[in-house]
Design a protein around this nucleic acid. Structure first.
Length: 111
DNA sequence: GAAATGACCCTCA
DNA sequence: ATGAGGGCCATTT
């Protein structure tokens, strides 16, 4: 059983991955947004930890996860090119253009 | 148990 | 844009 405040990390990871799997090609999602969507609004860092142990296969599109500034992951150098291959645009300074590519989880206004 | 660590987030200068 | 500083919180030293 989970004691107060503690987290079932394996379940947490499963929830994180289930969200990431819903992000379509050409869109990105942020750590903080994922954290809020799965009910752990203050755990953006833990989301990062979950992503760090994601196998580099195609089951979970980990490359579509960036931080709130549009920065790509420090330990994942290929990420930028992979996003470019999907048509994601970057600013001159190397940040993802979130205004254009941040995924809307509610899909109120489909593209 | 204290201190350091990290794919984070925010504000301000 | 860049950097500093504070806040955050589970995990690992």
């Amino acid at each position: 059983m989970m004691l107060g405040g503690e987290i079932d990390f394996s379940k947490f990871c499963a929830d994180v991955y289930s969200v990431v799997q819903q992000v379509p090609a050409g869109k990105v999602v942020t750590y903080g947004l994922i954290a809020r969507l799965i009910g752990y609004p203050r755990h953006s860092r833990l989301v990062g930890r979950a992503m760090a142990i994601t196998p580099h296969d195609f089951a979970v599109p980990a490359w579509r996860v960036v931080n709130a500034q549009g920065r790509t992951a420090p330990i994942f150098p290929q990420q930028r090119q992979m996003l470019l291959d999907e048509g994601v645009t970057f600013t001159k300074s190397g940040f993802v253009n979130l205004k254009a590519h941040l995924w809307n989880p509610f899909d109120i206004f489909p593209d």
